[in-house]
Design a protein around this nucleic acid. Structure first.
Lengths: 153, 153
DNA sequence: CTAGCTGCAAAGCTTTTGCATGCCA
DNA sequence: TGGCATGCAAAAGCTTTGCAGCTAG
């Protein structure tokens, strides 16, 4: 954890940005909630727990900065808000998501899966891929299990 | 074209919705701009050209209705607006997009590409896929060609 | 020291909603 | 005719911005 904060600090400095207490608090919240897909408001409330004086605008500005630095990815699942997802270190591709249309849960897939598809796209469409977004909408294993249980009652 | 309007009309009626002049005008705009990825505001302005009395709220309500009926898909490319994309008839999957980070153009890929990936996801993650969203961000063939030309000058 | 950062509040956007009126099936 | 649909304007989010004061390096 400390290591990752340190690394992000260096990344900021290398672009002559400062690691202010507010930015550090925000980064820590993101690290502590790596599995979640927090909205700016979510992050704000969590940061506020430990640093009550922080402003929402600062959180937005920090998240924008971290997106620029590719520390986080800004994603959008179709509800009205942007969510921020920490990039896994060393991951050369953005991970994929499984959004459950029953319970709203969001699971992550770290596996690449798109290698072959990207080759086809680059070749057939002469498109130089820099990033991708892949989201599946459907029924998650938990909701599926619940349904099966109910039926067999 | 008329055939498709007719078919959408039937689809509305089958769910006891009416095809009002405003809804028809909106559908026609969508059909005439099938290749584009119009925002609600875009649709509104285009409908207004032929039916100046229409209100923005009606366009929003119509687009929401058409999304429900799966006549269009609501998509989001990360700029602040939702865009609406007509579903190809007979397409059993939602097509993919190539977003150019240089010029902002959006091209479509009709090919399936995800068949194998979906099988893996359904099996390995026990996730029942209902829909997907796949977008690649990168340099389109037009911008790539321009760069190459400039370099060789 | 000082350029960059922050907090607050106000403004800006897109999208939704309330309500009186209108009109399609 | 009756109830759904519309237009307008106001409201409701989420996000950005202006500005005066503050602070990390």
């Amino acid at each position: 954890m400390e290591k990752r904060v340190e690394r992000i600090k260096k990344q900021l400095h290398s672009q002559s940005y400062k690691l202010t207490p507010q930015r550090e608090a925000t980064v820590r919240v993101l690290l502590e909630h790596e599995e979640d897909h927090l909205s700016a408001e979510d992050v704000y409330l969590l940061v506020k727990e430990k640093s009550p004086e922080i402003g929402l605008a600062t959180v937005y500005r920090t998240l924008e900065l971290l997106t620029e630095l590719k520390v986080v990815d800004k994603i959008n699942f179709g509800d009205g808000v942007s969510r921020y997802d920490l990039r896994k270190e060393g991951a050369d591709h953005f991970h994929h998501h499984l959004v459950c249309i029953e319970c709203g849960s969001v699971d992550e897939i770290q596996e690449d899966l798109l290698g072959d598809v990207e080759k086809i796209v680059e070749r057939d469409f002469n498109f130089q891929i820099k990033d991708h977004r892949l989201t599946f909408h459907g029924i998650c294993h938990r909701c599926h299990d619940n349904k099966t249980t109910e039926e067999s009652d």
